[in-house]
Design a protein around this nucleic acid. Sequence first.
DNA 1: ACCTGTTTCAAACGTTTGTTTGAATTATCT
DNA 2: AGATAATTCAAACAAACGTTTGAAACAGGT
Lengths: 214, 214
Amino acid sequence: MEDDTRQRLLDAAEALFAEHGFAETSLRAITTQARANLAAVHYHFGSKDELLHAVFARRLKMLNEERLARLTALETGGGPVTVETVLTAFIEPSLRLRRAGVQGERFTRLLGRAQIDASEALRDFLRDQYAPVLERFQQTLGRTLPQLQPGELRWRLYFALGVLSFTYAGARLPQMPFAARLVGDEEWLLRQLIQFLAVGLCAPPLEEGAEKTA
Amino acid sequence: MEDDTRQRLLDAAEALFAEHGFAETSLRAITTQARANLAAVHYHFGSKDELLHAVFARRLKMLNEERLARLTALETGGGPVTVETVLTAFIEPSLRLRRAGVQGERFTRLLGRAQIDASEALRDFLRDQYAPVLERFQQTLGRTLPQLQPGELRWRLYFALGVLSFTYAGARLPQMPFAARLVGDEEWLLRQLIQFLAVGLCAPPLEEGAEKTA
DNA sequence: ACCTGTTTCAAACGTTTGTTTGAATTATCT
DNA sequence: AGATAATTCAAACAAACGTTTGAAACAGGT
């Protein structure tokens, strides 16, 4: 059976959704790029929404499992549990995806976008996928940074994920050299990124009256 | 002349574009919310694209001018030129917009979104609006942080804008308490944000062989 | 009151959209 | 080879979209 029509559809959808967004990408653009018939989308996936869902499902589960595995390895004696190593455990799996090829790069771009422009339905799906991961990382970071109040830590984690999403989404800013697509440059960029996030997370708490924690 | 039809259209478009995105918002949804006729959009603006353009034009020019004015005031003796004060000069004007009312909040949300999901045409427009501002702030920060290479500073600035965009866009993350909509909470959040960005920008340079500057 | 220019309105236009259909084609198995 | 299921295909569907039209309603000035 020619089931790689399915893969070609997923690849094309991944690329076009990442580049132009969900609503502005037509099924005809996807099926053309995938060299497939228009009706193939509904045959293999049922609807455009379920196609998007499948694009995420294809990679997200494994990605988050690898994040948790690295964190567990770290905590069960695999190395020092510092803010940097915990951050690396979270980021490295996604960076591996990017290094694995242009499709992985597109997926991370789509993932970054989705944090901001996802519809409510997709947000629910992403929340289910991310919640346990973020929960675990937040707990571990809370032990590494006991001086921070829970609300403080949570917002810093929020900021950190913002940087990551923004960078993966590849938001173009003026004067930004996007020669940083070479892998060598990405390694350098990763260190810059991790340092930026680490010092932000490690900053001393802003002392004043206890804030609402939640 | 009933020219506040124009304003109502801009308000409705601002709100709906910010909440659902450009492509997923129909002119009919906008004109319904604005209690205006469908054709009013083309009468007042010419097209949907030009409506979006007008939504940005209405506030963005003044916003960036205020940013530059605050930076100039700082540099011409208005206070100490530190990373924190420069950051505040950039952020405060947008925060004032948010404090001014729900429409300002919506605009900043739209602005945050646009950094990631803007079409190429809109990106050109935003680039023209942002380029001189970012240029000036980058220069000033370069003088405040002379130990950083230009490429390093630029990327840190990029990360900082990412956090800001992400936060303004109001990306929902699991476990995030969005009771932080009260103004009091926003003030606290602003201090958290500025500290996070400041320590990230001020971090010591990663010393190693000179990287490509560009 | 009349004219003139501006603004609103309901209705329609032609495209494009996601989706469905039913026949044709291809693969799989006995 | 023939029967059965899986997949592809061209064509059409209704709905929604941005846009256009031309007449109605309104405004201000003389």
